[in-house]
Design a protein around this nucleic acid. Structure first.
Lengths: 167, 167
DNA sequence: TTTATTTATGTAGTTAACTACGTAAATTTG
DNA sequence: CAAATTTACGTAGTTAACTACATAAATAAA
């Protein structure tokens, strides 16, 4: 038990990050062990293009929840790997439309059994009493209703009103 | 519902990271709203020095679960802010011993009510059916028993053995 | 008691995200 | 329809973590 575990709720962000990093690093090793040249950070882009077929840069960024410059960096890497291809939108000259390439689609079919294993291993890891996936979904839902900041500010306000009443 | 939410378990690492970033950013704004010049990333170091009093660089790194170079960077910032001070260990010339400064201890007393608010806001956010804190504790415990990679490799092995038996 | 190994700290360079800003195309408004 | 605004994309620079390597002190081994 280190101090971050002891600090509990105050260090929650740190612990979430640590867990995320560990999973991503292991993810990388799983692909490697299966002889597949693929980085976990590419997954969101590949997955969205698999399911939505053709999207612009900003649309992809929106779907994966990243800023558009970060998305552009990922797209550059994926084009270099020839897993995706891009072309101008004829209807709107500002837009660049992205798709999986033949190589990309082929890699996806190779990865699908690996994705099944990753999913199974994830279930093996997180299917505890307080299921992590459910917990995240529930917290994201609460975030949608009111941000962490707003919750804190409400508490501060309530605290100040208590003081005023008590004097 | 974006594609990352739909991808579910495969994109768990991405979602953990996103949640962590949102909480950290809001944390920064909470300190700001309370007129306290403090960055959430400093918390682990300050908290460990508050509770362990005097520690070396590597000891701090171990406690907060960061690499020692990352820790050194944090320590430099905190020394610049004059929240901590350091001196050589007389018994071991290699070691640099860190402590909270008077200014650091004073800031801690100012922050303690804010920490209470952050804790309360966190409870408000995560106290759902599948409590996130419990979920993380349970997953970390499982990680200790067997890594994500090892779990996946076991599944791959089991899968291959099935194939062999089936032929 | 030299020599080899380990431990503690530090530096340099990398990575993967970000924000801020700039340009060009499309759209809306006066 | 000309001007202003918005949208889409891109570049530059920042940040907060990391790994790899270097050096010096302490400890262990020959």
């Amino acid at each position: 038990m280190n101090i971050i575990d002891e600090a509990g709720l105050l260090a929650l962000a740190t612990r979430l990050q640590r867990l995320s990093e560990r999973m991503r690093k292991d993810g990388e090793d799983i692909y490697k062990a299966m002889g597949i040249h693929f980085q976990p950070k590419w997954f969101p882009v590949i997955y969205v293009l698999l399911h939505r077929n053709t999207l612009s840069v900003v649309e992809i960024a929106g779907e994966i929840g990243y800023s558009h410059p970060s998305t552009i960096t990922l797209l550059k890497e994926l084009e270099k790997e020839k897993l995706i291809r891009s072309g101008k939108d004829k209807a709107d000259e500002r837009k660049r439309l992205l798709q999986l390439s033949a190589k990309g689609r082929k890699l996806v079919t190779q990865m699908e059994p690996v994705w099944d294993i990753i999913t199974a291993a994830t279930i093996d890891l997180i299917d505890t009493q307080h299921n992590l996936m459910r917990a995240i979904e529930e917290v994201e839902e609460r975030f949608r209703l009111q941000s962490f900041l707003q919750r804190a500010l409400s508490l501060i306000k309530a605290h100040k009103e208590d003081d005023a009443t008590g004097s």
